[in-house]
């Protein structure tokens, strides 16, 4: 084509686009993608984690030319992919325990270094395995600056065991251990922690958040993460239709609303400082996000909208928008 291409119907918002240079298309658009997590796995319909994991690992496989091994914490992702006698993984994959994925990955990385191998290591787990039970190991891996990319697939509760609260569960969310009862229905305000910010506090080379709402953003971050050595952390928002009570075909929409309302900011940090943010494209109220999920049903019970509590959540979203400058992205 002679003239310079200046606009595509969808730009890079979709996975591919026949008019785009193959280099600019997502790894996920390519028939050559690794399908690191392949068909036949037993995740629920519309599982955000299954999707996120394939996106991340296929991108990491691309970035490393296939020189990659994966360490997986116990959790949904492990259970639905490897029930004997079938494995859904098409990458070298190791599962040890719930709390030790970061340490096992350190061990693998140490072995590779000791052997003079260029093979890279990705560790992955859910929010429980990452932010709660495995947090000590994770922090150790960070502070030693071990050459591991740790990926947390955050679905905001312990889904494998039946939707119990984790330190990633947002305020007001109903889980099996934070029922929508009493004066503080659902998870309480003021609980929980921000794993990416804590990761940043270790001063490690690279920390980023990503979401199944934004494929290209996610793949770019995986690629950026694999370009550097040392400890890296990627926190990926992955809606869980089962635990959140959202429709299986709403997984990406829900993730998108989380980003667009400001509750899940997308940013990148290097050596402890935020260096880039993905700007909000079409700002949405948190209510639009909440309404798609039955875990927030109690805010809309009996046709009445719990304006006061929703406003508290909106304030959190607004604070994120301000703090991370999400409207402008600069």
């Amino acid at each position: 084509m002679s003239q310079r291409i200046k606009f595509y119907q969808t730009g890079t918002l979709t996975a591919g686009n026949r008019l785009l240079d193959p280099e600019t298309r997502a790894v996920q658009s390519s028939v050559d993608r690794s399908n690191a997590l392949t068909s036949g796995h037993r995740a629920c319909q519309g599982c955000g984690e299954a999707l996120g994991a394939r996106w991340v690992l296929d991108a990491a496989m691309r970035a490393t030319g296939g020189q990659l091994v994966v360490v997986n914490a116990t959790g949904c992702l492990e259970v639905f992919t490897t029930p004997y006698p079938e494995s859904s993984w098409q990458v070298p994959w190791l599962h040890s325990l719930f709390a030790n994925a970061a340490s096992v990955a350190t061990g693998v990385a140490a072995a590779m270094r000791s052997k003079g191998s260029a093979v890279r290591v990705v560790a992955q787990g859910g929010d429980g395995g990452t932010m709660d039970i495995g947090f000590g190991a994770l922090s150790g891996m960070f502070e030693r600056n071990d050459d591991v990319l740790y990926v947390c697939y955050d679905n905001e509760a312990y889904m494998n065991t039946g939707v119990q609260r984790s330190s990633a569960t947002p305020p007001l969310a109903r889980t099996a251990t934070t029922p929508a009862l009493g004066p503080e229905p659902g998870n309480e305000f003021g609980h929980g922690k921000n794993a990416p910010l804590i990761a940043m506090a270790h001063g490690i080379p690279y920390v980023a958040t990503a979401s199944v709402a934004d494929l290209h953003d996610l793949e770019d971050k995986v690629e950026a993460a694999m370009k550097v050595h040392g400890a890296r952390y990627l926190h990926v928002h992955v809606p869980c239709p089962l635990g959140w009570g959202s429709a299986s075909d709403d997984t990406i929409k829900v993730a998108r609303l989380a980003v667009q309302c400001g509750l899940f900011p997308l940013f990148e940090a290097e050596h402890g400082e935020v260096v880039r943010r993905t700007p909000i494209r079409q700002r949405q109220p948190v209510e639009a996000y909440l309404r798609l999920q039955r875990r927030f049903d109690h805010l809309f019970a009996g046709g009445r909208v719990d304006v006061e509590r929703i406003a508290r959540l909106q304030a959190i979203a607004d604070r994120n928008i301000e703090r991370f400058r999400l409207l402008t992205g600069d």
Binding site: V69, V71, L94, S96, L97, A99, N100, A102, S103, V104, A105, T106, G107, V108, A109, A110, A111, M112, R113, S114, K115, G116, G136, A137, S139, G140, E143, R144, D146
Partner: peptide, 28 residues
Amino acid sequence: TPCEFINVESEFSALSVAIGASAAGARA
């Protein structure tokens, strides 16, 4: 040498690092 000496943050991680190293084919 070659040998990686890893100062871990707990015994749980000590053995976990050894697990990873051993699984990756290193004498741990």
